[in-house]
Computed example of a mutant assay.
Amino acid sequence: MSDFEPGLCTVTFRGLPPESIVDLAREARLAAIEWAGDAHVPPGDTSVARIVGRLCERAGLAISYGSYVAPPTDDPSEFRHAVESAIALGASNIRIWAGTRRRDSKDYSAGERRATADSIRDMAAEAGRHGISVSLEYHPQSLTDTTESACELIESIAHDNAYLYWQPRPGLPLGEAIAEVARIGQHVSHLHVFAWDRDRNRFPLASAADYWRTILASLPQSRWKGRRLAMLEFVANDEPAAFLEDAATLRKILGE
């Protein structure tokens, strides 16, 4: 049985109101929700965050905050807004981006990489003062778009409150995925889970069940000590019915 619990990223359903997403998560028997800062819980809007937090509390759902803060492009004031929303939500974790979004890691100078690491280190310290962890989105066209770049960055940050997410690049072969998580797994807090091919076509999670079972079994012990979430992100045709099927598959993969 995996130590990861099933969750949902609300970017999966940008068009649905929070109440409907919470209802879906309950129906799917999930443990947590990561709320999108660009859709459902805007950074700094603490009134909305408190309302959504109460919905989750009544439903017994743990909370992460999926911000789109991208240091050093976004300055500390932008991150403070994200922290305000995370506190109002009751979130235990804030996701941020590593470097400028939609920019390949190979295009950064050494000085730009240092500036990014310094900024993230400061954000990790600030969040830690409020009992909130910081995790970096693991994503193409960011400073976590390759294993080497992600390792260099997290080691440069060198802060015990800064972690990595992990998700496969679309179409990543299983052997390469295993090698990747072996390298970065000690820093991984949470996972984003989906079934895409190289062209970003979406498929039922059941078609990638063995892939994800192998990844989970391959992850080394992490320095992360909190609850660990494997969060569904996007489903075929954005359909709630497809989500419910994928959630059932995810629970089975995790050994419920």
Rank of each mutant, 00 (worst) to 15 (best):
R50H: 12
V188G: 12
W166A: 05
H190W: 13
G99M: 01
S47F: 15
F13V: 12
D122V: 01
D210Y: 04
I253T: 03
L89G: 08
S109R: 05
E256A: 05
N237M: 13
R54T: 15
T12A: 12
S119I: 03
A162C: 13
E112I: 05
S133C: 14
G60L: 06
Y165L: 15
V83C: 11
G171C: 10
A82F: 06
K106I: 15
T249P: 12
A70H: 01
D210H: 06
A179I: 00
R103Y: 03
E5H: 06
Q221W: 02
G128Y: 00
F203L: 14
W35S: 07
T116M: 14
G37P: 05
I51M: 15
R26F: 09
L244D: 09
V22I: 11
W166T: 01
S189W: 11
E57C: 07
V52L: 07
F243L: 07
L219I: 10
G128S: 09
T146G: 05
A150W: 01
V193L: 06
R80T: 08
S135H: 11
E239M: 09
E5R: 12
F194Q: 09
G226K: 04
S64Q: 07
W212Q: 07
G44H: 04
L244F: 07
D23R: 04
P220S: 00
W196A: 10
V181A: 00
H130M: 13
